[in-house]
Structure formats: structure tokens, C-alpha cells
């Protein structure tokens, strides 16, 4: 039981280190880095490698943005398996919708509640 927490910490941390190296060494902006990581997550899922990583690291693999690419691809492939090529289009948001919809909802709620502070 404890081990899943350790692997979540380590794997999640390592994915962030990859992001930090893209920031510092490759000199990418945050937006470029996140896009690249999402694409990496998607490709890993296409190769069937991301699900085992989730099995291994739990939240360490589902919390980093790479899982966003993974779940989009996963949804698309699951539908494609059932309905063929057209499923690629229809299945896309089947799995990921929770992330996007909660970001939209909470983002909108936040705009009622908060205003930018601008302090250090």
C-alpha cells in the first residue's frame, strides 16, 4: 500500500524533471513544454506503454499533463476498436472530459470569486 505512494511521488516528480529540462536546457516556454508532454503522453499510449505506467505509479502518472494526451488517445482508440475509423473522432473526449469540463467549470466559478492579486 505504501509503495504506490512512493512510486507516485517518484514517477510524478521525474515527469516534472523532464518538463524542467525542457524549460531550462531546451529553452522552451511553458506552453511549448506542456504541448510537447501531451504529445509524448499520447504517443506512449499509442505504443501501449502509458497504461502500465499508471498501473505502476497511480497518481504519479495520472496527475501530470501527459495523462491528458494518454486519455484522449485512449478514448479515441477504444471507440475506434468498436466502431472503426469514425470512432477515432467520436471517442476522443469520452475519457478526458472530466479534466476539461472541471477546468472550464472551476475556471468560470473562479472568475466570479477572485480577482488577480498582483502581490509577490
Amino acid at each position: 500500500m505504501i509503495s504506490i505512494f512512493i512510486t507516485a511521488f517518484v514517477v510524478g516528480g521525474l515527469i516534472c524533471v523532464v518538463g524542467q529540462l525542457l524549460f531550462d536546457v531546451a529553452k522552451l516556454t511553458p506552453a511549448h513544454t506542456l504541448c510537447l508532454l501531451v504529445v509524448i503522453g499520447s504517443v506512449l499510449d499509442g505504443l501501449g506503454l502509458y497504461e502500465p505506467l499508471i498501473d505502476f505509479a497511480g497518481a504519479g502518472a495520472t496527475i501530470p499533463i501527459t495523462s491528458f494526451g494518454n486519455s484522449l488517445t485512449h478514448g479515441a482508440m477504444a471507440e475506434a476498436e468498436k466502431h472503426g475509423l469514425i470512432g477515432v473522432l467520436t471517442g476522443m473526449f469520452e475519457v478526458t472530459s472530466s479534466g476539461i469540463s472541471s477546468a472550464i467549470i472551476f475556471g468560470f466559478i473562479a472568475s466570479f470569486l477572485f480577482k488577480p492579486k498582483g502581490t509577490i
Binding site: 515527469i15 516534472c16 525542457l22 524549460f23 501530470p64 477546468a103 475556471g107 473562479a110 480577482k115 488577480p116
Partner: peptide, 25 residues
């Protein structure tokens, strides 16, 4: 403090959405 440690997790995605939303209120 965290650099990519703050922006790579899904919380960073949320931060990007929320900060833009409240900024342009």
C-alpha cells in the same frame, strides 16, 4: 519555486485556465 513541478501536473493546467479567467474578468 517548482518551475515545471508546478506547471506539468494537471494543477498547472488548471492554474493556466483560472489565472486567465480571473485576469480577463
Amino acid at each position: 519555486i517548482g518551475g515545471a513541478g508546478g506547471s506539468v501536473p494537471i494543477t498547472g493546467f488548471s492554474n493556466a485556465v483560472v489565472s486567465a479567467a480571473i485576469e480577463h474578468k
